[in-house]
Design a protein around this nucleic acid. Structure first.
Lengths: 194, 194
DNA sequence: ATTGAAATTAATCAAACGTTTAATTAATAT
DNA sequence: ATATTAATTAAACGTTTGATTAATTTCAAT
């Protein structure tokens, strides 16, 4: 494994676990067993390192979102399952995204608002419209509510689950996650057609 | 307003908006119009300042949770409404809690695991049991799933809403929040009795 | 008016920060 | 074998960090 890759890998975990500000370049360098200067050699700056780490981490997510949006197969169930799979494959992803992309004060907030939010947010109306056209949701429901419900569902594997596991001291297995995924999907549908 | 109170107020917003690590003692002092040494004079250390800020911010929350647990009036609707009211009254609360208490790497994580998590998490089984005894939820549902669903609902006003508002570029009014609160409560019930 | 504690200030500390530099080794191309 | 580029290192840069110190002001109680 190259020095560059090792830096990127360490940065991803550290930034996700401790946050950008609380993680020093020297810490990353030491954990990756490289000279601190290598980070600037390869990435230019600490912020660019985070950008690179996020880009790599978010790639499968944006790919999945676009694929779902275009394939016209997006349903609450499909979204939930896709997101859960992504998180299972990349355990660092949720924390990294929540910390530095979604929460205010995050380093990548501007980048998020300009590039990612429109793409993610833009996909939701399409999904809603498709659900409405098949008669699965009420047509008179305010779009904001529908989008919010869908969003709440999509956020579950990213935020709610890790936090809830911590508070409840749970360690959910795959079967339980499957059960809950179906519950969440049902929620979205019910929210639309009570 | 005393210097101490001003420091505490500024610290609450800054820590919530930018995170603990990214907020310097000097920044807080300047924003509070106070000499940096005053922070150590009143609070001892930066970490103790965060502890004080969190304690003050969390007071209404823990009070509300305990009150609900003891009054035996806790229902999904009541929980959602209470939490939403708390957040409306203290807009900094969610971010502060999420950043430094719930997410790993947060400064107060140990304090959270030892003191707050048991109290919050401990209340959920009681609420579940009460719902089961009145026949409003299925008795054969795995407790973990029920608690998780309830937790997901409780987390909405804290995490999902601000993030979703950002992604969807929404600015939800009270009526919409009411609507969504009822949808969430319905979700918990439906999740139990589909 | 004096005293003494509390509040506040300016100045300073060592440590850690992100970053840069210059020099050196390793690898590749000519 | 030589020249060129890439990778890596150790050391130092100036700045900012949280924290401390000593001196000063504030102000109520005597």
């Amino acid at each position: 494994m190259s020095a560059r890759d090792k830096i990127l890998e360490v940065a991803q975990t550290r930034f996700a676990e401790n946050g950008y500000a609380a993680t020093s370049v020297r810490q990353i360098a030491e954990a990756a067993d490289v000279n601190p200067a290598m980070i600037h050699y390869y990435f230019g700056s600490k912020e660019d390192l985070l950008r690179a780490a996020l880009e790599q981490a978010l790639e499968p997510l944006t790919e999945a979102v676009q694929a779902m949006q275009q394939s016209r197969e997006a349903s609450p169930e499909a979204i939930t399952r896709t997101l859960m799979g992504l998180v299972a494959a990349h355990p660092n992803l949720p924390l990294l995204v929540v910390r530095e992309v979604m929460l205010p004060g995050g380093v990548m907030q501007a980048h998020f608002a300009e590039n990612l939010a429109p793409r993610l947010g833009g996909a939701l109306p399409d999904i809603l419209a498709r659900e409405a056209s098949t008669g699965r949701i009420r047509k008179d429901l305010p779009p904001a509510i529908g989008a919010l419900a869908l969003m709440a569902m999509a956020l579950f594997p990213f935020i709610v689950r890790p936090v809830a596991e911590k508070v409840l001291d749970l360690d959910l297995d795959d079967a339980q996650l499957e059960t809950f995924a179906s519950h969440i999907s049902e929620f979205v549908r019910r929210g639309f057609a009570p």
